[in-house]
Each structure stands twice: as structure tokens, then as C-alpha cells.
């Protein structure tokens, strides 16, 4: 769906070193990993191309040092890519003037940071109102708007607290409120929950889902947590050593990992929540009793299938026709089977 692409990135490179431009020119814009190493350059982002579609949650995942943070900073122009093309709604992001870029950030982009990035000398209200303040919006207007955002993230009543007086989770709520204050079109979140305790993290993820269900933003979300990615993502891009090794739906990643690296992530993924019935169904059989929808996740139908003596028919909800069947064995293998085979392979 190319028309839906809100952001387009083509052949992005971000290389660190003495003369990255010259280096890439010498290698015709596509140096080999050996060349990088030999000449002492670090390729933080290497030849990455992808689209961010209107209204989707695109999650970019990778270990630390894989280039995901650099990538998001290239898109937001916090770091300029060395070479490559980037478009936002058809405008060339790299040709923006300083003024246009500031305008874009003031009205279209919102960003949440791993360590919150709150201004320590301002209280909650002033922090949330800050993006409005730099735009020159009147005090009364920005206070109203900021208060609404604070209520939205559930921090009503703490407007005059300073960041140091808040817990980590609360601080990130302020960060979220601030990034939403300008009603951005695209919302960038750079590992927003990584600095939080696991319990708080789960709570914040649910909060995030709640917000998105109300706001329907286009979202670029960075994480190193595969479980978080699968929980929130429409699509996941997996990065390794600066390259995007696979960009697909969580289900595709689990079922068809592009390489061992992706498979390694996918192996511990909660398949029952990712894989849908349609992806593992078998041909139609007459012995089937009962029906399950084709798009349902396995976890949702597992009980029904596992307790049924016979295979269960799979129905395509859009047409209402039976398109296949699923039995106990298939469900069991798809949830547990691969793991045991992994285990044997490892042994």
C-alpha cells in the first residue's frame, strides 16, 4: 500500500568516522562490512529502507548497538543520515530548512525518550506545556491544553510537582503527555519503558494501548524487548549490526524467520498470542465438529480445540465459508513443538 506510507526511507546510511561522506562515495554508497572495519568506520545504520504506514504501530527492535536508536534519530533529524532518502508525506525530509524542520517538530512530530528527558527545573505542568511555550502559544491556552494532557495520562492533581518528586512511571507519563501536547501526526517512542521496573512496564504498556485506541496515531516505537514488540506491534523491523534484517508482522517473524538471528528472538515468543489459526490450519476435513475463526490467535481457541475429540473447522469470517480444519496435534506442536525441536538441535 505505497499510498498509505507516511514516512518513506530509502537506502539510509549513518556512518561514523573521520570522513563518512568521502568513505561512502569511494565505495559507491554500498561498502562491505570488511571495508568498514578495515578503514575504521562504524556503520550505525546500513542501507536501511522501509515505509511507515498511516495509523500503524511500527516497532523497531534490536539489541543495544544494533542501530535502532540511531535510525529513529535519523528520521527525526536529531542526527542527520550520512546518505539516503527520507520523505514525510511526500516532502523530502533532508532538504528541509532549519525553520521548516522546527515547524515540523512543533506540529507534526512527538517523541518520548528512554530516560524521560524532563526538564528538571520545571514542574509537571510547565514540562507538558513546554512544546506549546516554545511555539509562542498564549499562557492560558497552553495551560488548558497541558492540563488536558495531564488528565489524559492520569496525573491530574500533580501539576505542581517537580520531576524529582515523581516515580519513574509517573515521569514517563509526563514525557508522554508532553509529546502529545502538540497533537502530533507521528509519535516516536524511543525505548519508552525500558528504564522502568517490569511491573510498571506492563502497566505502562497497557496504558499505551489504551491511549492508542483513543488517538490512532502513526507510531514508530523502539524497543529491545521482543515480547513488548509482539504485544504492541502491527509490524516489527528487526535490526542487527545496523541492517534491518526483517520487517514483517509478528506472525510472519515467528513462522518464517528470515535467518537464525530472527529465529533466536522468535523462539521465546508467546506463539499462542501471535500465530493465528489460519496460518497453521490443515485442509478441510469432514470429521470436524464446531468452528473457530480463521484470524483468531491460537491461544484464544486452544482450549476449544484441545478439549475437542475431533478436529475443529476453520471459518473465514469475511465470507463465512469453511476454509480448513485444525486438530489437537497441530495446536500442541505449534505452541510447544518447535521448542522441543530447538532443544534437540541444540543438543
Amino acid at each position: 500500500m505505497p499510498t498509505d506510507a507516511q514516512i518513506k526511507c530509502r537506502n539510509l546510511w549513518k556512518v561514523f568516522g573521520d570522513d563518512p561522506q568521502g568513505f561512502l562515495r569511494r565505495h559507491k554508497g554500498n561498502p562491505s562490512p570488511e571495508a568498514l572495519k578495515e578503514e575504521g568506520y562504524i556503520g550505525a545504520v546500513q542501507d536501511v529502507s522501509f515505509d511507515v504506514n498511516q495509523g500503524e504501530i511500527l516497532i523497531i527492535m534490536g539489541l543495544s548497538g544494533s542501530g535502532k536508536s540511531t535510525l529513529i534519530r535519523c528520521i527525526t533529524r536529531l542526527n542527520d543520515p550520512t546518505i539516503g532518502e527520507m520523505e514525510y508525506e511526500g516532502r523530502d525530509l533532508l532538504k528541509l530548512s532549519e525553520r521548516e524542520l522546527i515547524d515540523l517538530r512543533r506540529h507534526k512530530f512527538g517523541m518520548v525518550f528512554q530516560n524521560f528527558g524532563l526538564l528538571p527545573h520545571r514542574d509537571v505542568l510547565e514540562n507538558v506545556a513546554f512544546p506549546l511555550e516554545v511555539q509562542g502559544i498564549s499562557k492560558a491556552d497552553r495551560v488548558t491544553r497541558a492540563k488536558a494532557m495531564i488528565d489524559l495520562v492520569g496525573l491530574g492533581g500533580r501539576e505542581s510537582y517537580f520531576p524529582r518528586e515523581l516515580s519513574g512511571g509517573q515521569q514517563q507519563r509526563v514525557g508522554i503527555a508532553r509529546s502529545l501536547a502538540v497533537e502530533p501526526d507521528i509519535w516516536f517512542l524511543d525505548e519508552p519503558f525500558s528504564a522502568l521496573d517490569p511491573l510498571i512496564r506492563a502497566e505502562m504498556q497497557d496504558e499505551f494501548i489504551r491511549l492508542q485506541s483513543m488517538l490512532h496515531k502513526t507510531i514508530v516505537f523502539i524497543t529491545h524487548d521482543f515480547e513488548e514488540a509482539t504485544k504492541l506491534a502491527d509490524r516489527i523491523g528487526i535490526m542487527k549490526d545496523g541492517r534491518m534484517v526483517q520487517l514483517a508482522t509478528p506472525e510472519e517473524l515467528v513462522l518464517n524467520p528470515a535467518d537464525d538471528y530472527v529465529a533466536e528472538f522468535a523462539k521465546n515468543a508467546p506463539r499462542e498470542r501471535i500465530v493465528s489459526v489460519g496460518a497453521i490450519m490443515q485442509p478441510v476435513t469432514d470429521a470436524a465438529s464446531g468452528t473457530v475463526p480463521m484470524s483468531a490467535k491460537i491461544g484464544a481457541v486452544a482450549e476449544q480445540v484441545l478439549t475437542s475429540e475431533n478436529p475443529v473447522a476453520v471459518v473465514d469470517e469475511s465470507s463465512g465459508t469453511i476454509v480448513g480444519s485444525i486438530d489437537r496435534q497441530t495446536v500442541a506442536t505449534s505452541i510447544f513443538g518447535t521448542r522441543s525441536s530447538e532443544g534437540t538441535r541444540a543438543a
Binding site: 528512554q114 530516560n115 524532563l118 516516536f188
Partner: peptide
């Protein structure tokens, strides 16, 4: 902290 600076930049400073 770089987060604070970047937050400022992204706020459109």
C-alpha cells in the same frame, strides 16, 4: 543528559 536536549529539540526549540 542527551534525552533532555533531544526532548528540547523535538519540542521544536
Amino acid at each position: 543528559s542527551s534525552d533532555v536536549i533531544e526532548a528540547g529539540q523535538m519540542s521544536g526549540c
